[in-house]
Simulated assay, not measured.
Amino acid sequence: MAYVVTAACSGCKYTDCVVVCPCECFREGDQMLYIDPEECIDCDACRTECPVDAIYYEDDVPDQLREYIQLNAEMAAKTPPITERKAPLK
């Protein structure tokens, strides 16, 4: 299991979560962040840092956002790692 970034991140891309991640599992897309499920160690550090509540543990992703589980896995393979704070899009 892993944590998942969902719709609330789209268009804002806060990076508070990135700087607390001990395993560098975040990836940066154009409009949002993604979590690489192969790298995530389920530490829960990122979830509490997200100012828009976009991050869920995989088992807790609401039904209407379940598509983001697969999207994170797909996009993590296509996007570069991000490990430092950046200005949000909003």
Rank of each mutant, 00 (worst) to 15 (best):
M1Q: 12
A2E: 12
Y3S: 15
V4N: 12
V4G: 12
V5R: 07
A7W: 08
A7Y: 10
A7N: 09
A8L: 11
C9E: 11
S10K: 15
G11E: 14
C12N: 14
C12V: 15
K13Y: 03
K13S: 13
K13W: 02
Y14H: 15
Y14N: 15
Y14L: 14
T15N: 10
D16E: 14
C17Q: 04
V18K: 02
V18L: 06
V19L: 04
V20P: 02
C21N: 09
C21P: 07
P22I: 09
P22D: 11
C23Q: 10
C23I: 10
C23T: 15
E24A: 13
F26S: 01
F26E: 00
F26T: 00
R27C: 00
R27Q: 01
R27T: 00
E28T: 02
E28K: 07
G29D: 02
G29K: 01
G29I: 01
Q31A: 05
M32Q: 08
M32E: 07
L33E: 08
Y34I: 08
Y34T: 07
D36E: 02
P37I: 06
E38L: 12
E39S: 06
C40A: 08
C40G: 06
C40N: 06
D42S: 12
C43R: 05
D44L: 13
A45L: 10
C46H: 04
T48P: 01
T48E: 15
T48D: 15
T48V: 12
E49Q: 14
C50Q: 02
C50T: 03
P51S: 10
V52E: 08
V52Q: 05
D53F: 13
D53L: 10
A54P: 04
I55Q: 01
Y57W: 14
D59T: 11
D59M: 09
V61Y: 07
V61R: 06
P62Y: 04
D63T: 13
D63L: 12
Q64W: 12
Q64K: 10
Q64V: 13
L65C: 01
R66Y: 09
R66W: 07
R66V: 14
E67N: 09
Y68G: 01
I69M: 11
I69Y: 08
Q70T: 14
L71I: 14
N72T: 00
N72V: 00
A73R: 14
A76S: 15
T79A: 11
T79N: 13
T79L: 11
P80Y: 01
P81C: 00
I82T: 03
R85D: 07
K86A: 01
A87H: 04
L89P: 03
K90N: 06
K90A: 04
K90T: 02
